[in-house]
């Protein structure tokens, strides 16, 4: 039977997944691995596994592969966690997988970026089940209606890998994946203290999140979870402010779904000016304080 299973690794992923599920056009269930299920998302059934945290991939994938057997499509929001787990589920089920879907042509034909977003591939699944991860930006936000039934799922999960340490989500800023405004910085920010003061300061003034280039992360100026781009986070805010970012293909791959991209760079030839909606040729150390001041005046 054709039916889609949405897997929500964290409860807030469910609402961001419904647009994709509805674009596929099949009836869908939502499996909440952790947290309280939201029952107003148009699902046939909400399934709650009530895990305290998502276990290492080998264990959770075994559970999901058994669970997914009755579905034609098994999908999760693109994230490092979902890529870690979903491809393992696909391997276990000997099923195909489509990574980072950005468009749906039919329940078996999807569009996705390749080569750091410089090419769009249309890909067809030749067999079911098919595993998918998708980027939510291109899919509409759903109306929240209805009341799905909730079923508790008993999940006993044993992983061969042992988790011995992890960092928690830090700080009070919004998540990069969901922020309306992102302020991002590159290597010209010099050091971690300057990065936090200048980029973090503007982000806080705008109630936004902080992002960084690979170069900034590699040189220790910014934390790795802030990296935006082909191999980091893919973002789609209303406003993306890139300060001191030259605009490599790999970085632009992560921001092209932003509604408005603003570039601040003192090099008038920086490639980012070809992508940005609005550009200012200026030293970020002049422009950002002036920006904060202009906001304060209003």
């Amino acid at each position: 039977m054709s039916k889609l299973l949405v897997i929500a690794f964290a409860p807030d992923e469910a609402v961001r997944s419904v647009g994709f599920a509805q674009a596929v056009g099949l009836p869908y269930d939502i499996l909440f691995l952790t947290g309280e299920p939201a029952t107003d998302l148009g699902a046939d059934r909400c399934l709650a596994a009530n895990l305290s945290e998502v276990p290492p991939a080998d264990g959770i994938a075994r559970f999901l592969a058994d669970f997914a057997a009755e579905y034609s499509h098994v999908a999760a929001l693109s994230s490092m966690r979902s890529k870690d787990v979903m491809a393992r589920v696909a391997g276990r089920m000997r099923a195909g997988m489509i990574t980072d879907a950005i468009g749906v042509e039919s329940p078996s034909v999807f569009r996705r970026p390749i080569l750091a977003g410089s090419i769009i591939e249309t890909v067809e699944t030749l067999s079911f089940p098919i595993l998918l991860t998708f980027r939510p930006a291109g899919f509409p936000k759903p109306e929240r209606t209805g009341a799905s039934s909730v079923e508790l799922i008993a999940a006993t999960i044993v992983s061969a890998a042992t988790r011995v340490a992890q960092t928690a989500q830090s700080g009070t800023r919004p998540d990069l994946g969901q922020a309306k405004v992102i302020v991002s910085g590159g290597r010209p920010l010099r050091d971690a203290e300057t990065f936090e003061r200048v980029i973090g300061g503007l982000a806080d003034r705008l109630g936004g999140a902080v992002g960084a280039t690979r170069a900034a992360v590699d040189s220790g100026i910014a934390h790795n979870e802030l990296q935006v781009g082909q191999t980091g986070k893919i973002v789609a805010p209303d406003l993306y402010i890139a300060a001191g970012i030259s605009g490599s293909t790999q970085h632009m791959a992560g921001i092209k779904d932003s509604k408005v991209i603003v570039a601040i760079n003192k090099d008038p030839d920086a490639p980012i000016f070809e992508f940005a909606d609005l550009g200012i040729v200026a030293d970020l150390y002049d422009a950002i304080p002036a920006f904060v001041q202009a906001l304060g005046d209003s």
């Binding site: 410089s118 769009i120 249309t122 202009a294």
Partner: peptide
């Protein structure tokens, strides 16, 4: 015996050309 196959590839839609602004107050 592949499970998935590429149907076609194409260039992504081009972003509309942006504009340069001269000052921060204009930007805001």
């Amino acid at each position: 015996s592949p499970k998935i196959r590429t149907v076609r590839v194409e260039a992504p839609p081009a972003r509309q050309a942006g504009r340069m602004v001269t000052g921060v107050s204009e930007l805001v």
